[in-house]
């Protein structure tokens, strides 16, 4: 099916885009379009005005700067997948990118767009939550920085203002002893997550967990943080027993719904397993030694 007709603007600077968002009536922002275009075609979205930001070259970046890993609004999933910087320093991002949809969609879809879409089955929101990430938005009053844990409200609903444009998503650059990982369960390549867990661990000089972050995908009405599990981890030494309890706490914090892919009980159990795996990888990447002991 065709989209309903819409007015179409192609700004080439952020300023031009934000003035358009301010002056136009209820505009919809088009970035990668891999969710929006099907929604337009099914007429689940019927905007009168579409502002296509793909011409704003200054938003096409992925770099470390001022203590952050910054992804401009036009950084595509494939940019993350192909980045040496990501491979070397950002385990959770390197894990996540190749698990998003399929190669064609990763060439077009953007990380920031996926976050803005706020589908509870989207992967990047969980990764941002695990990393204490931030969303940078530009609006009529200038720049606003929104912590990831204050961004997601409901499925497809966020605290982003209607006249605001996400220009960047970012996470702090890694501490000396930091590791992160993302694990996702899906029925087949290209599917959304049945469940997913992102984990970040920062170890202190003594090898204890200084900071823990856990974000969960597809098991609540938004990407969700497993706060109890995080608190349980902090101050402790990484161990299989510790992660087992953290996995249980993450499962308790999750709130999945039964659907054709599995019952709520099953999904909770999967959160437990995925959390343990993600924490295990994160600990190893943070420099903790993983010793395998046969039972």
């Amino acid at each position: 099916m065709k989209s309903a007709p819409f007015e179409h603007y192609e700004p080439t600077t952020t300023n031009e885009a934000t003035s358009l968002l301010e002056s136009l009536d209820d505009p919809t922002i088009l970035a990668g379009g891999q969710s929006l275009v099907p929604m337009l075609r099914f007429r689940l979205a019927n905007p009168d005005v579409v502002v296509d930001i793909n011409g704003i070259d200054s938003l096409d970046y992925l770099r470390e700067e001022d203590g952050y890993l910054k992804l401009g609004a036009l950084a595509r999933h494939a940019d993350v997948e192909d980045s040496d910087l990501i491979d070397e320093r950002y385990g959770s991002f390197a894990d996540t990118a190749p698990l998003v949809a399929d190669p064609q969609i990763r060439n077009r879809g953007t990380v920031a767009g996926s976050v803005a879409q706020a589908d509870p089955k989207g992967d990047w929101g969980s990764v941002l939550l695990a990393h204490e990430g931030e969303i940078v938005a530009e609006g009529p009053d200038g720049e606003r920085v929104i912590p990831a844990d204050e961004f997601f409200l409901l499925p497809y609903d966020t605290t982003l203002g209607e006249d605001e444009l996400i220009t960047e998503v970012r996470i702090p650059t890694p501490e000396p002893r930091e590791g992160s990982a993302y694990h996702k369960l899906k029925r087949k390549t290209g599917d959304y997550a049945m469940a997913g867990v992102g984990a970040r661990l920062v170890l202190d000089d003594d090898g204890r967990i200084e900071t823990a972050g856990i974000g969960m995908t597809a098991v609540d009405i938004t990407n969700a943080q497993a706060t109890d599990a995080e608190q349980h981890l902090e101050g402790e030494r990484p161990s299989a027993d510790l992660f087992e309890t953290a996995g249980e706490l993450a499962a308790e914090a999750s709130n999945p719904e039964s659907d054709e892919h599995g019952g709520a009980d099953y999904k909770e159990r999967m959160v437990d397993v995925l959390a343990q795996r993600a924490l295990g990888d994160a600990a190893e990447r943070a420099g903790a030694v993983r010793r395998k002991v046969t039972q």
Binding site: D205, F243, G280, A283, A288, R290, V293
Partner: peptide
């Protein structure tokens, strides 16, 4: 396997 994590030791 059962796994253990020994934080604080360099590999």
């Amino acid at each position: 396997f059962e796994r253990e994590y020994l934080g604080g030791e360099e590999t």
